[in-house]
Design a binder for these strands. Structure first.
Length: 263
DNA sequence: ATGCCTAACACCGTTAGA
């Protein structure tokens, strides 16, 4: 089962790139983030014509997540636990989860768009940290099922020094701040494996490059898109890598897809 | 310290991304 995650930065602007990716790479499951469209505006027919089932959870202008799958999509969930009063009012479309039955077995997958945080010590930064708490609470429950669970996301956190182009200069900045890294680690401490790092302990490979200042050309990037695996999925992890080609095209997303193969 | 670049939306600039 090949599962990929990709922040497309508008599914409308990137539709041809997405269809090309499905055709060329043939993932069983593609987890999308940053749709930037309403659920009903998602290009479902185009994806179905490419041979994929669709479950999308969008909103106007911002955020939005989706699951595309060659296999049937079941038991869709789009909510996270409410830990505080303020969480009740949270209508941002950042989470979608489903069960995929393929290759004679069940995989539970989730596509998550963790908040960016905007600025350290801002309200949005606090929202980002709290979002990790809600995600951790939810995953804690999922892990009790002891399934092959794959959480693909734009986590908006580079976990370690190797995951950024200049750790000294970037330390303490957005996506490379100790508080964010602690939240990300708290997910790993539940028993999840970072698929890329599990297979490539010493390789520096980014998944995002700034549009500005020739980020890609100078390889000034961050590894912030990750596939986190339950023990049952990690036991069967066979490969994981970043697909650079979509980032090198005309009018690309600023993120590249990350994929893994799980037996 | 700031802009750099891109997309959406609603208009010819603002908000957000990371």
């Amino acid at each position: 089962m090949k599962i990929a995650t990709w922040n497309v930065n508008s599914v409308k602007a990137r539709l041809q790139h997405v269809l090309d990716y499905l055709k060329d790479e043939q993932p069983d499951v593609l987890l999308l983030q940053e749709l930037k469209c309403l659920t009903e505006a998602f290009p479902t027919m185009e994806c179905e014509d490419a041979g994929y089932n669709v479950a999308a959870h969008g909103q106007k202008t911002y955020n939005g997540v989706a699951i595309l799958s060659k296999h049937p999509i079941e038991d869709v969930v789009t909510t996270l636990p409410v830990l505080e009063e303020a969480d009740k009012e949270d209508k941002q479309a950042r989470y979608i989860e489903a069960v995929i039955c393929g290759d004679g077995q069940a995989f539970r997958v989730a596509s998550v768009y963790v908040p960016n945080g905007t600025e350290i010590d801002s309200d949005r930064f606090a929202y980002k940290l709290r979002y990790f708490d809600r995600l951790r609470e939810h995953i804690t429950g999922l892990l009790r099922y002891e399934e092959k669970l794959i959480i693909g996301a734009d986590y908006n956190v580079a976990p370690e020094d190797i995951d950024v182009y200049n750790p000294k200069a970037l330390r303490g900045t957005l996506c490379f701040h100790p508080e964010e890294q602690q939240k990300f680690r708290s997910l790993l401490h539940l028993g999840l494996a970072d698929a890329y790092r599990a297979l490539h302990p010493d390789v520096q490979q980014f998944s995002w490059w700034d549009y500005r200042g020739g980020g890609l050309q100078n390889n000034k990037g961050l590894r912030i898109d990750h596939l986190l695996l339950s023990p049952q999925a990690a036991d069967n992890l066979q490969a994981c890598d970043v697909d650079l080609h979509p980032r090198q095209k005309e009018k690309p997303s600023d993120h590249a897809p990350v994929w893994c193969e799980i037996a």
